[in-house]
């Protein structure tokens, strides 16, 4: 099975995240870049499927040069090879452009299964997997908490408001995973060493046949008009329970008319 995992480098949520005043895009230099948390679950699921069914796991990312760190992490977990779409023209791409560019690359790599995280920690739009399924014209098996492949058929449990849906489709397909699906493995020392030698193919937009007019800040279908750092929450009142903590809490709720 030819499995492609889409991974994104995101600013570490533990550091302060910012937009750049000059073009209102994410300031990728302000924070450490890490592999988007949910993408670890996507990589893990791909590795498990490969272990069960054979085949190859390719990591695909679109991002600046420094996103190679993220690629290495996925390779260290056990992915076989990687494709890195990197081009200054991609800077500032919105979800329509990003899905267009990734779909283009997937057209050249081919795939039986594309696996994504269900959401990134920076933009959190949660639309990429659905957009890829739309663009590629393949089944959308998203928000999966369980994935099973049997020959060319694939079944998932899709998380819903009320529980989950059992969903069936056939390969090729696009899958996104939620964090209940597995426990990602830690890269072993051996894995980290091996990752250094694994092939990483770098593509420019021209290499991938991507139309420059469809990507980047200039092509975006939406724009950030303005932004401002949110005023800090006013410091709250913190009391220590001295046998009357519940009463004080009730008084607070009453003062706010909740009771």
């Amino acid at each position: 099975m030819n499995i492609v995992v889409c991974v994104k480098q995101v600013p570490d949520t533990a550091t302060e995240r910012k937009l750049r005043p000059e073009d209102k895009t994410l300031d990728r230099d302000a924070a450490d870049g890490v592999l988007n948390e949910l993408d670890e679950y996507a990589v893990e699921e791909a590795l498990r499927l490969k272990e069960a069914h054979g085949g190859e796991v390719t990591v695909l990312t679109m991002g600046p040069q420094k996103a190679t760190e993220t690629i290495r992490k996925a390779l260290a977990m056990g992915a076989d090879k990687a494709v890195h779409l990197v081009d200054d023209a991609l800077h500032g791409s919105d979800t329509l452009s990003t899905s267009y560019a990734l779909a283009k690359v997937l057209g050249t790599t081919g795939f039986d299964l594309v696996i994504l995280g269900s959401e990134s920690t920076d933009a959190r739009t949660g639309v990429l997997a659905a957009m890829l399924a739309e663009r590629l014209g393949v089944p959308q098996l998203t928000l999966a908490r369980k994935v099973e492949v049997n020959g060319s058929s694939i079944t998932i449990e899709r998380l819903t408001d009320y529980g989950y849906d059992k969903v069936e489709g056939t390969l090729p397909a696009v899958v996104s995973v939620v964090e209940k699906i597995n426990t990602p493995r830690y890269p072993s020392f051996k894995g980290i060493m091996a990752a250094k030698k694994k092939p990483v193919q770098t593509l420019s937009i021209a290499d991938a046949g991507i139309d420059a007019g469809q990507v980047g800040l200039g092509a975006a279908w939406s724009e950030v008009a303005e932004f401002a750092v949110a005023p800090p929450r006013a410091a709250g009142t913190i009391v220590t329970d001295e046998g009357d903590g519940g009463v004080k809490a009730a008084e607070f709720l009453a003062s706010k008319k909740f009771i």
Partner: peptide, 18 residues
């Protein structure tokens, strides 16, 4: 906005009673 530093097993029952 409001916090109680304390054991929830003491604070919550009292809060519910109140």
């Amino acid at each position: 906005d409001f916090g109680v530093v304390g054991d929830l097993f003491k604070v919550v029952p009292q809060l519910v009673d109140e």
